[in-house]
Design a protein around this nucleic acid. Structure first.
Length: 682
RNA sequence: GGCGAUAUAGCUCAGUUGGUUAGAGCGACGCAUUCAUAAUGCGUAGGUCCCAGGUUCAAGUCCCGGUAUCGCCA
C-alpha cells in the first residue's frame, strides 16, 4: 500500500463563543478519521484554527472593554483546552488573525483581481449614525413587515418565517446603539462567482461532494450564481484589502484561507513543503469536514477562489448533520445547550466520542444524543462487552501463569475471523461509516464473550490437569482483546493507550492486528474505564439549566419606569364602581387637542343610565372606530365641569400615551357568553 | 413562503439493484452461569415499516398526494 499524503481540516469555530456538543460532532468525526489514517501509516495532518474576524467579535470586544486581539486570544485558549480534553489531536491549531492568513488571503485576492474576477460597485446599506458603522442584517432589529412581530432581525422573521431585506423592517433600530439606521452608499468589492459556473458544475458533480448534496447544489446553479460581496467598510475587525483605503475582507473570505494558513504554520514547525499540498498540480489530498449549513461556502466559493488564484481545489468536502439532544434542537433558553466544558466537568470525554461514532455515517442526516440511550449504550458496549473480555481473562493469566501468554495459534478460528475483519473495518473507517464499523467491532466482541462462556475456563481451572486449556483459552481472549483494541483505537485513543499498557505493547498501528502475541508477558489488569453514571448526566443538565436561566434573565432586568403604587385596602377598591358601558356616540371636541366626547350607555342593570364622558384618547382613536365598543368606566366618579361640558365619569385606558394608548374591552369567555353594559367590574 | 432531508420494535438505528417469515443493539421478561466493574450466555415477548392512493406476479424499498419533525434560503 502506498503512503498517502492527506491534509484534513474541520470547520473553524467562531471566536465569539464556547465550544458546545454540537461542534464536537465534527471535531470528533474528523479526529477519528485522521487518527485512522495515521494508524494506517499515511502522512495525515489535521489542522484547524479559530475564525477570529468580523463584526460580532469587534462588538463583543468593545462591550467587554478589551481589544479584539485580547478577546480572540482568550477564546482560542479556551477552545484549545476543550479540544485537547476531548482528545482531538490537531497537528496545528491556528488563528485566522495571523500573518500567514493575511499574506495568503491578500495573495489570493490579488490574483483574483488581476484575473478580472473582482467587480466594484456602490450599494446602499443600513448605517448606524451613532456608532458610525454599517450594520450587518443581524444587527438590525425591528418589526416584521409581514406579520408585525416585534424584535425581529434584519434578514428574516422567526415568528412567521418571512425573509426580507433590512430596509423593509418597520421601526428598525440598530442593535448596537439603539439609533435608527439610515441608508448610506458605499463601494463594495464583489467576487464574480458566475465566472466559475462551468468549472463548479463539473467540480461538484465529480465526487468532491456527497451526492446527497447535489440536489441542493443544483438548486443554487438553477437560481444562478450571484456575485459575492467580499468587502466590508471600516470599522471592521479583519484584514484590510490591499490597494484600498478603508475596505476589509469579509470574514468568510479569509476564513477558509485559514485552513491554508494553519497548514503553512505547521509546515514551518515540521519542515513540510507547503506547495506539495497546495500547488495546482498537487497530488496530495485535501479533505474538509464541515457542517451541512456551510456547504455553500465550501462547495462553491472556496473551490472557485482556489481555482481562480491558481491553487489546487479540495479533494473532498464532507458534510455532516446537526446534533439534537433527546430529539430536540439544542437551545440556550430551554437548557439543552451543553458546552464542552460543562460536559467535561462531570463526564469523561471518551464515552461521548464512542457514542457519536456509533451514530455517525457518511451521510448528512442529523444525529441525536439521547442521554438515556447514551448511558446504556456506552456501559453495555464498552464496559460490558469490550473491557470485560480483558477483565475476565486477565486474572487467570496473572495468577496462574505469571502474566505469560501461551503459544497462541493464529489459526484459531475466532482469532483468524477477528483478524480477517481488518480490511473490511478499515474500509468502513475510510468511508466514514463509523456506525457500521462500531457494529462490526461489537459483533466480534460478542463472539469473544460467547467463546469464553462456552469454554468455561473458571470451571476447568478447578482441575490442575486442565490448566493448559485454561491458559490457551484466556490467552486467546487476550489476543482477541488486542485486536479489538486496535479496531477501537481511532475512536478511543485514551482507552487504547490504557489497553496498550495492560497488554505491555508499544503504540499500535493498524498492521499490528496480525501481530502474534505468543509467549508475550502482559501486565496486571486494572479497570480500564468506569461506567457512566446517569447522575453525572443529571449534573450536566442542571448546569445547562442554570445557564439557561442566566441567559433568559438579563432581558427581564429592566428599570421600573412606572413602579407599582402603594398598597391599598379592599375597601378602598370597593369604593370605585367600575361598569361596562357601550359607547353609543363618539365625536371630536371643537378646540380640544386631546379629547374625544363619548356618550355611554351603562345598561339595564343601572336602570339605563347614560353618561357623557370626555376622554383624552384622541391621539390613539378615531371616533368612528369607537362607536359600538364596550369599555370600562368609573361610574361613580364625581362629575366634573370642563370647558367643553360636563364629564360624568372616566373611561379606563392603558399605555404611555400618544399613539400607544388602549382602552379596555371585555373579552368573550370560553363558554361563548358575552358581557353586557352595566355589569360591574370587580 | 420556496426548496431539501427524515419518518421502521419502548429507545437508538440497520435494511444493498423491488423478491421467502422485516433485523441488530439497548431496555423489558424468563432461564443458566459466577471468571469478570450486577459483567456474560441462552431464550421469550414486542412492528398497520407515518397516513391515503397508484405501478407490479411481488412494495419498508418505486411513483403521486397528504401529515409531522428538522434543516437551508448565500
Amino acid at each position: 500500500m502506498s503512503t498517502r499524503k492527506i491534509l484534513v481540516t474541520s470547520a473553524l469555530p467562531y471566536a465569539n463563543g464556547p465550544i458546545h456538543l454540537g461542534h464536537l460532532v465534527e471535531y470528533i468525526q474528523t479526529d477519528i478519521w485522521t487518527r485512522f489514517q495515521k494508524m494506517q501509516g499515511h502522512e495525515a495532518w489535521y489542522v484547524c484554527a479559530d475564525d477570529a474576524h468580523g463584526t460580532p467579535i469587534m462588538l463583543r470586544a468593545d462591550k467587554e472593554g478589551i481589544t479584539p486581539e485580547a478577546l480572540i486570544a482568550k477564546t482560542s485558549e479556551e477552545h484549545q483546552a476543550d479540544f485537547a480534553d476531548f482528545n482531538i489531536a490537531f497537528d496545528h491549531y491556528h488563528s485566522t488573525h495571523s500573518d500567514e492568513n493575511r499574506e495568503l488571503a491578500s495573495d489570493i485576492y490579488l490574483k483574483l483581481e488581476s484575473a478580472g474576477h473582482i467587480a466594484k460597485r456602490t450599494i446602499s446599506q443600513a448605517f448606524d449614525p451613532e456608532k458610525q458603522m454599517f450594520l450587518p442584517d443581524r444587527f438590525i432589529k425591528g418589526e416584521c413587515p409581514k406579520c408585525g412581530a416585534a424584535d425581529q432581525y434584519g434578514d428574516n422573521c422567526e415568528v412567521c418565517g418571512a425573509t426580507y431585506s433590512p430596509t423593509e423592517l418597520k421601526n428598525a433600530v440598530s442593535a448596537v446603539s439603539g439609533a435608527t439606521p439610515i441608508e448610506k452608499d458605499s463601494e463594495h468589492y464583489f467576487f464574480k462567482l458566475g465566472d466559475f459556473e462551468a468549472f463548479l458544475k463539473e467540480w461538484t458533480t465529480s465526487g468532491h461532494v456527497h451526492e446527497s448534496l447535489e440536489n441542493k447544489l443544483g438548486e443554487w446553479f438553477e437560481a444562478g450564481l450571484q456575485d459575492w460581496d467580499i468587502s466590508r467598510d471600516a470599522p471592521y475587525f479583519g484584514f484590510q484589502i490591499p490597494g484600498s483605503d478603508n475596505k476589509y475582507f469579509y470574514v468568510w473570505l479569509d476564513a477558509p484561507v485559514g485552513y491554508m494558513a494553519s497548514f503553512k504554520a505547521l509546515c514551518e514547525k515540521q519542515g513540510l513543503n507547503f506547495d506539495e499540498y497546495w500547488a495546482e498540480d498537487s497530488n496530495a489530498e485535501v479533505v474538509h469536514f464541515i457542517g451541512k449549513d456551510i456547504v455553500y461556502f465550501h462547495a462553491l466559493f472556496w473551490p472557485a477562489m482556489l481555482k481562480g488564484a491558481g491553487f489546487r481545489t479540495p479533494s473532498k468536502i464532507l458534510a455532516h448533520g446537526f446534533l439534537t439532544l433527546n430529539g430536540e434542537k439544542m437551545s440556550k433558553s430551554r437548557g439543552t445547550f451543553i458546552k464542552a466544558r460543562t460536559w467535561l466537568d462531570h463526564m469523561p470525554a471518551e464515552p461521548l466520542r464512542y457514542y457519536f461514532a456509533a451514530k455517525l455515517n457518511n451521510g448528512v442526516s442529523d444525529l441525536d444524543l439521547n442521554l438515556e440511550d447514551f448511558v446504556a449504550r456506552v456501559n453495555s458496549d464498552l464496559v460490558g462487552k469490550y473491557v470485560n473480555i480483558a477483565s475476565r481473562c486477565a486474572n487467570f493469566i496473572t495468577k496462574k501463569f505469571d502474566g505469560q501468554l501461551t503459544e497462541i495459534t493464529e489459526a484459531h478460528p475466532l482469532v483468524a475471523e477477528c483478524a480477517a475483519a481488518a480490511p473490511q473495518i478499515a474500509e468502513l473507517y475510510e468511508q466514514r461509516d463509523f456506525a457500521r464499523a462500531v457494529r462490526e467491532i461489537m459483533a466480534l466482541a460478542d463472539k469473544a464473550n460467547q467463546y469464553i462462556a462456552e469454554q468455561e475456563p473458571w470451571a476447568l481451572a478447578k482441575d490442575e490437569s486442565k490448566l493448559p486449556q485454561v491458559h490457551d483459552i484466556c490467552s486467546t481472549g487476550v489476543r482477541l482483546f488486542h485486536i479489538l483494541s486496535i479496531y477501537l483505537k481511532p475512536l478511543l485513543p485514551a482507552l487504547g493507550e490504557k489497553a496498550e499498557a495492560f497488554l505491555n505493547l508499544p503504540p499500535q498501528q493498524w498492521s499490528d492486528v496480525g501481530q502474534n502475541l505468543s509467549g508475550h508477558a502482559i501486565n496486571k489488569f486494572k479497570p480500564l474505564m468506569t461506567r457512566v453514571q446517569s447522575e453525572d448526566i443529571e449534573k450536566v443538565l442542571e448546569v445547562a439549566a442554570e445557564e439557561a436561566k442566566a441567559f433568559a434573565e438579563p432581558e427581564k432586568k429592566v428599570e421600573a419606569t412606572n413602579p407599582i403604587a402603594d398598597e391599598i385596602e379592599f375597601d378602598d377598591f370597593a369604593k370605585i364602581d367600575l361598569r361596562l358601558a357601550t359607547i353609543v356616540e363618539a365625536d371630536h371636541v371643537e378646540g380640544a387637542d386631546k379629547l374625544l366626547r363619548l356618550q355611554l350607555d351603562l345598561g339595564d342593570e343601572t336602570g339605563g343610565v347614560k353618561k357623557q364622558v370626555f376622554a383624552g384618547i384622541k391621539s390613539a382613536y378615531d371616533p368612528e372606530d369607537l362607536i359600538g365598543k364596550t369599555t370600562v368606566v368609573v361610574a361613580n366618579l364625581k362629575p366634573r365641569k370642563m370647558r367643553f361640558g360636563m364629564s360624568e365619569g372616566m373611561v379606563l385606558a392603558a399605555g404611555p400615551g400618544g399613539e400607544d394608548l388602549w382602552i379596555l374591552e371585555p373579552s368573550n369567555n370560553s363558554r361563548g357568553k358575552f358581557s353586557q353594559a352595566g355589569n360591574r367590574v370587580k
